[in-house]
Computed example of a mutant assay.
Amino acid sequence: MKVTTRNGRVVLASDESDKLLDVHTLSENQFRSLGVSNVAYVRPALTEDGEEGCAIHAADGSPLAVVEDMETAWGVILQHDMVPATLQ
């Protein structure tokens, strides 16, 4: 899928064809799956030592890692070509 715009609206283009899909017509599950492999979120957590750290999760909630601080978390996410987001 390719994300693009047409007449000011965000649309998806299938890799197999030139047919464009309007994101407003996606089901809730289809919409939730967009970008799952490209987005990671960070939230406060405890490290294995019991100290404060940051947990990195995939957009679907799967745990990826726990690191020492927010700066390290964002660096790890960016290094893996993902988009970071934070949760408080």
Rank of each mutant, 00 (worst) to 15 (best):
M1D: 07
V3I: 14
V3A: 04
R6F: 03
R6Y: 06
R6K: 14
G8M: 11
G8C: 01
R9I: 01
R9S: 12
R9H: 09
V10C: 11
V10H: 11
V10F: 15
V11M: 15
V11Y: 02
L12K: 04
L12Y: 08
A13P: 02
S14G: 10
E16A: 13
E16V: 12
S17R: 09
D18H: 10
K19L: 14
K19V: 15
L20H: 12
L20S: 12
L20A: 11
L21V: 15
D22P: 01
V23P: 01
V23D: 02
H24C: 06
T25L: 14
S27C: 06
S27F: 01
E28M: 09
E28H: 08
N29A: 15
N29E: 14
Q30W: 04
F31C: 08
F31L: 13
R32T: 08
S33K: 02
S33R: 02
L34P: 02
G35A: 05
G35H: 06
V36R: 01
V36S: 09
V36Q: 12
V36Y: 04
V36C: 07
N38H: 13
N38F: 07
Y41T: 01
Y41E: 03
V42L: 11
V42W: 04
V42T: 06
R43E: 14
R43G: 11
A45W: 08
A45H: 04
A45E: 10
L46W: 00
E48F: 00
D49M: 01
G50E: 01
G50V: 09
G50F: 08
E51Q: 05
E52M: 10
G53T: 00
G53K: 03
C54P: 00
C54S: 09
A55L: 02
A55E: 06
A55I: 03
I56M: 08
H57N: 12
H57Y: 13
A58G: 10
A58C: 04
A58Q: 09
A59E: 03
D60H: 00
S62T: 14
P63Q: 06
A65P: 10
A65G: 05
A65Q: 12
V67Q: 02
V67G: 03
V67P: 01
E68I: 10
M70D: 03
T72D: 06
A73D: 08
A73L: 10
W74D: 05
W74C: 00
W74N: 01
W74F: 09
W74M: 04
W74I: 07
V76A: 08
V76R: 06
I77P: 03
I77R: 00
L78H: 13
L78T: 09
L78I: 13
L78K: 15
Q79E: 13
H80S: 04
D81R: 06
D81F: 10
M82A: 05
V83P: 03
V83C: 02
V83A: 05
V83N: 07
V83Q: 05
V83W: 02
P84W: 07
T86M: 11
T86Y: 07
T86Q: 11
Q88W: 03
